[in-house]
């Protein structure tokens, strides 16, 4: 079967701000080749939020690190695909060229602000360093900008707190510092890797609201990496669902939630307890997430899939099912036509 070109109904997609095409990042160990990322494609434009959703081991974080070329090598290596940023393929850039992009054009917000910030430098110093390096400001100007940034991300008494160390701040405040640092140079793309997973729900709400405000203000593209479908529903424009190193479904956020076209997406949604909706037993995706060193043959979801057929032992491609709605499932057309229910059946006690 011919593989249709990616996102057929978007003629503008050739000049997307950031476009990842069939990315493959493998890790070579003594005993195995771990295909952590093995066929990831998506794109994101200015002002948009793309959510990359998946469970642990699905390859979502390695995808993020690959875009910034921060995958440790050896053992890791980008073995295929392209990462087109403003028309340039980042895969072929040298280290020096990448350094000019990281933190300035594409920056990253990490999950754990305590380990991502340097404990022996003050919060201000870490922002100043970025500004001096990329914007060629004097230290005095950089410090003024750092204070402005801290103030903008809602740190009270920014003028005093600019000289504090990360350990003197709470988790929520540290995450605000991370955001200030990532946005100091007004990047075109921000990759946020589980930015609120380590935080309490009330603090998560604050941080998500802040990120949304800053995005509207600065017009940056956001790639939000998360496992939380609630966060996705509230913040994303488009969604790439990852399973076992591959994008298995790609669509706008409304379609992801109202008409999922991959049994994994449907199963994930069905298995979540929803607030205010009490059911006797939750629906369940049976089995466990596969080990990346031993992915199942064919469709990687087939051993857990409620609608698996013999054809699923062959590799399905990520293809357009309905315009810009893509799915990597042999039976996606039946699901789209609503002649097949992809959600796991209700379980009886």
């Amino acid at each position: 079967m011919d593989r249709p070109s990616f996102i057929v109904d978007r003629p503008s997609s050739a000049d997307a701000l950031l476009r990842v095409e069939d990315l493959k990042t493998y890790f070579y160990t003594d005993t195995a080749v771990i295909k952590a990322v093995d066929g990831v494609s998506f794109e994101v434009n200015a002002g948009e939020t793309l959510a990359v959703v998946g469970e642990s081991g699905s390859g979502k974080s390695v995808t993020a690190l690959s875009i910034l070329k921060l995958v440790a090598s050896p053992p890791g290596r980008i073995v295929g695909g392209r990462i087109l940023f403003k028309g340039r393929d980042l895969v072929n850039l040298s280290n020096a060229e990448m350094r000019a992009i990281r933190g300035k054009e594409i920056s990253m917000i990490f999950q754990e602000p305590m380990t991502a910030l340097n404990p022996v430098y003050t919060c201000g110093e870490q922002i100043i360093e970025t500004l001096v390096l990329h914007e060629h400001l004097t230290r005095r100007d950089a410090k003024t900008r750092a204070i402005e940034m801290l103030d903008r991300v809602g740190i009270p008494a920014a003028r005093q707190r600019v000289d504090e160390y990360p350990h003197q701040m709470s988790g929520g405040m540290r995450q605000r510092v991370m955001i200030a640092m990532a946005l100091a140079c007004k990047p075109a793309v921000v990759i946020a890797d589980e930015p609120t997973t380590a935080l309490d729900v009330t603090i998560q709400a604050q941080i998500l609201e802040l990120l949304g405000e800053l995005q509207r203000e600065l017009g940056m593209a956001v790639i939000l990496i998360t496992h939380d479908l609630g966060v996705v529903a509230e913040t994303a424009d488009r969604v790439a669902v990852m399973y076992a190193g591959q994008v298995v479904e790609y669509s706008n956020v409304l379609d992801t939630f109202t008409k999922p076209m991959h049994p994994y997406t449907a199963g994930l949604q069905a298995s979540l307890p929803k607030l205010g909706e009490v059911v006797d037993r939750l629906r369940v995706i049976p089995g466990t997430v596969p080990n990346p060193a031993r992915f199942p043959v064919g469709c990687r979801f087939h051993p857990r899939c409620p609608v698996m057929v013999e054809q699923c032992l062959q590799d399905p491609a990520l293809e357009s099912i309905d315009g810009a709605h893509l799915s990597r499932c042999w039976r996606a057309r039946e699901i789209a036509a609503r002649t097949l229910d992809p959600a796991p059946p209700p379980v009886k006690a």
């Binding site: 729900v201 009330t202 609630g230 956020v253 607030l275």
Partner: peptide, 18 residues
Amino acid sequence: LSAIPSHDVTHKKTRIVL
């Protein structure tokens, strides 16, 4: 309760941010 992100994409809820 209002801080929990809702899975409902069709109705965006108003939220109190503490």
